[in-house]
Design a protein around this nucleic acid. Structure first.
Lengths: 348, 348
DNA sequence: ACCACCATGGCAACCGATTGACAAATTCGC
DNA sequence: GCGAATTTGTCAATCGGTTGCCATGGTGGT
């Protein structure tokens, strides 16, 4: 006794089934294959016939069924973008740049987050892979092996991480860091702290390494300070350790932590930049809205998103050129959260 | 004779074609249809056979091909989410809530932005529709007719907008607004401004209407002030008009504009909240990081995203219940950008 | 006139999975 | 022990497009 029969009677209502190439074929009196060619292989079919077919398609409101097309061709026309945390403003511009390139090339972007969990990241990537032509992993937390395996199945590109020979797009952190260090040195700072990001983050390593290298070269002392999480709260709760370390300036793994640190300073009555100079990383939305506005090292996020997506498209198309990647330098953005240390000359 | 070891010869290299149910069938000595049933219809197949098949699938690293499945069934297992602007932090939590529900039900979320253009929104929606089971339109800028048409093709749900009988999830703006107005009245404000959002925004209308209704009922005077854009810059550039209007407090269409207004005040030396009280809308990321921190009317964005996605899933499944939607009240969040007007009692 | 050649359109075999109909094998009732 | 009921698994059609190959007819060169 199943009432299943009257499926579309009530409720959701009456949706007209979408038109197919067979409908167009019937309407114009040609075969389906002719319709298919008229629509995709310009020139292959007589212009007048093609016109008729296009008109018929138009009048029927025809939209190609991407699934049906994907089956024989193997191309889905969609690309996946995986980030660790959507609510992290760092990815805004990156996502946006990627989206721009994707839609400019008539690709659909599927987007997912891994909630900072390597496990979720892996299962999500695996779930997505069969449905897309390629995957863009942003700041992946996976192990090198896992990434290699994923990359063996479908085209894969990394952003803000490097693994073996797998195509990757990463900014050059050095320029911004050099500027920042020079700036701090010139202000009179001698001892600098780095409020570190997640262990598993490749970018965290890259930043620390560049920082270390260049600080030492300039005769500045530098210490790594650990934090609970690369978030506002993580930055805030690290203040005690920062103070205890005795540094006069801190560079944080990202702006979120810088902002958190600043907030904690305010709560504790520690003047920024009088008693502590703070420099963030990334230049996310909002870092120029605080008081004082956050000095930071900007990553060219939109450009990274675009470049990574272009690289992925090349990979999908199996283009063998794609070498002319322009460099993506970071840039020091001077705002208000840095100043001379208290031991130096007093404010004018 | 397994030369498989040489995984990455050159270039993109040699990707092994993914396993199909036919591979499993061959390996286990049954037919493809048996494999299909073993994997999807628990109980339909002998348990021992099913076991063998599942093991074989596992060992081959089998992943179902969503395209191939979608063809006969008509179900793609993916849902589309369309927002006007990804870089608008307002959508963060909403997107996240939606994503959570989608992945909890094993659905893939496709995500796109319309860059505040109705035209792009329409074409994107049309492009996405054939590839998904349903569409979630957030704060759509389309006309009612266009939305009706889209909704005639596939299941569609609206968030932050209402059109006819189309399923929609919108917060109840009134509670937060009442609290905000009471708060301002109590501080001594008599004349309030509303810095308006986009003409085409349904939510802008809804907020203004509720504001107007309740302000009048409280004996407060209220004026609508237009702004160029619902952004930080739009808010900043509206400061002159705000000042000219003579109001002592402003409620802005969203936090972005509130933040912009605050920034402009700072640049002009206008004290907040001493000379102007500012209340935003939404409680986006960053609104508690400024100085002063922005008082705002919070929308339950994550809950909206979740509810909307649940509604969409019900729609897709053709569930006929789905009436028990809990209300989604806004909430007043008191921070530091509001205070007594200068004409009132001086600060203690 | 003869033939090569090109433009045009149709036929049919896929792509990978689903599912109704049915055959073979097994179990059960009496 | 015989037919009936129930499992268990196979066949073949189908979803909507794509594409290699072939058939047809017209054109032009010599």
């Amino acid at each position: 006794m199943d009432e299943q029969t009257a499926s579309t009677e009530r409720g959701n209502g009456n949706r007209k089934p979408p038109a197919t190439i067979y409908d167009i074929a019937r309407l114009t009196g040609v075969s389906a294959s002719t319709v298919s060619r008229a629509l995709n292989k310009p020139g292959r079919i007589n212009v007048r016939t093609e016109r008729r077919i296009r008109d018929a398609a138009e009048s029927l409101g025809y939209r190609i069924n991407p699934m049906a097309r994907a089956l024989p061709t193997g191309r889905t026309g969609t690309l996946a973008l995986l980030v660790s945390d959507i609510t992290n403003p760092v990815y805004f511009d990156l996502v946006r740049g990627a989206e721009r390139v994707a839609s400019a090339t008539d690709h659909t972007l599927v987007f997912a987050e891994s909630q900072e969990s390597a496990e979720i990241e892996l299962s999500t990537a695996e779930r997505l892979q069969p449905a897309v032509d390629g995957v863009l992993l942003v700041a992946s937390r996976l192990s090198d092996e896992q990434i290699f395996e994923l990359s063996a199945t479908k085209p894969l590109v990394l952003a803000n991480r490097r693994v073996g020979e797998i195509p990757a797009v990463v900014p050059d952190v050095t320029p911004g860091i050099i500027e920042a260090l020079d700036h701090l040195k010139q202000l009179g700072h001698r001892s600098i702290g780095y409020l570190a990001g997640p262990e598993a983050s490749w970018m965290n390593r890259a930043r620390w390494d560049a920082l270390f290298e260049n600080a030492v070269g300039r005769g500045l002392s530098i210490v790594e300070i650990t934090a609970a999480a690369p978030t506002v709260d993580g930055g805030a709760s690290a203040l005690r350790r920062v103070v205890a370390s005795g540094v006069t300036a801190v560079i944080t793994y990202n702006d979120l932590m810088g902002l958190g640190l600043m907030r904690a300073c305010r709560a504790e009555g520690i003047g920024v930049p009088e008693r502590l100079s703070i420099i963030g990383f990334d230049d996310i939305f909002g870092s120029d809205l605080t008081t004082p506005a956050l000095t930071t090292i900007r990553s060219p996020l939109a450009a990274i998103g675009e470049a990574a997506m272009r690289r992925l498209l090349a990979e999908v198309r199996d283009d063998l050129d794609a070498d002319a990647e322009p460099p993506l330098p970071t840039e020091f953005v001077l705002r208000e959260s840095t100043g001379a240390p208290t031991a130096g000359s007093p404010e004018a």
